Computed example of a mutant assay.
Amino acid sequence: MSVQFVLDAAGKQTAVLVPIREWERIQKSLQKPAAAKKAAAPGAAAKERFKEEFREAVREMKLMEAGKIPKYPLHQLLAELDNEP
């Protein structure tokens, strides 16, 4: 790899020139940890889905308490939960 350093008048390094192929390799290696983290945490999507569904349930409860949507009986809720995958 032929990296070149750019120096200012005082001799301090201010920039680096990297060959394009090396730069592309660096970019790919920087993107891998994020992809690896997603792959390493397969439950992350399920956790986010649960959190969103819970938020929606709280919104619905508040609307029911305010009388903006009808309340429904507990047996109906339990029946819905039994039918979910």
Rank of each mutant, 00 (worst) to 15 (best):
M1G: 10
S2E: 12
S2I: 08
S2W: 10
V3K: 01
Q4P: 00
Q4K: 14
F5L: 15
F5I: 05
D8R: 00
D8G: 00
D8T: 00
A9Y: 03
A10L: 06
G11R: 02
G11S: 09
K12N: 14
K12I: 05
A15F: 01
A15R: 05
A15I: 01
A15T: 00
V16H: 00
V18T: 00
P19N: 07
I20K: 07
I20D: 06
R21F: 15
E22K: 02
E22N: 04
E24M: 15
R25I: 14
R25Q: 13
Q27V: 15
Q27G: 10
Q27F: 10
K28H: 14
S29T: 15
L30W: 13
L30R: 14
Q31V: 09
Q31I: 10
Q31T: 13
K32N: 09
K32Q: 14
P33D: 04
P33A: 05
A34C: 05
A34S: 10
A34V: 12
A35P: 04
A35E: 12
A35D: 13
A36G: 06
A36Y: 04
K37Q: 09
K37E: 11
K38V: 10
A39F: 02
A39W: 02
A40L: 05
A40H: 06
A40F: 04
A40I: 04
A40Q: 09
A41Q: 11
A41H: 11
A41I: 03
P42F: 03
P42D: 08
P42R: 02
A44R: 09
A44W: 02
A44D: 11
A44Y: 03
A44Q: 12
A45D: 15
A45K: 10
A45Y: 01
A46T: 13
A46Y: 02
K47D: 14
K47R: 06
E48Q: 07
E48A: 13
E48F: 01
R49L: 11
R49H: 04
F50H: 05
F50Q: 08
E52W: 01
E52G: 03
E52A: 14
F54M: 09
F54Q: 07
F54P: 00
R55S: 07
E56V: 15
A57C: 12
V58T: 05
R59G: 03
M61W: 02
M61K: 09
K62Q: 08
L63V: 01
L63R: 07
L63G: 00
M64I: 10
M64R: 14
E65G: 07
E65R: 11
E65D: 15
E65W: 03
E65V: 03
A66E: 13
A66V: 01
A66H: 02
G67I: 00
G67M: 03
K68I: 00
I69A: 01
I69D: 01
I69V: 15
P70H: 00
P73A: 15
H75A: 14
Q76N: 07
Q76F: 05
L77M: 08
L77D: 09
L77Q: 09
L78M: 14
L78E: 11
A79D: 12
A79Y: 04
A79V: 07
L81P: 01
L81T: 10
D82W: 04
D82E: 13
N83Q: 14
N83C: 03
E84R: 12
E84A: 10
E84V: 13
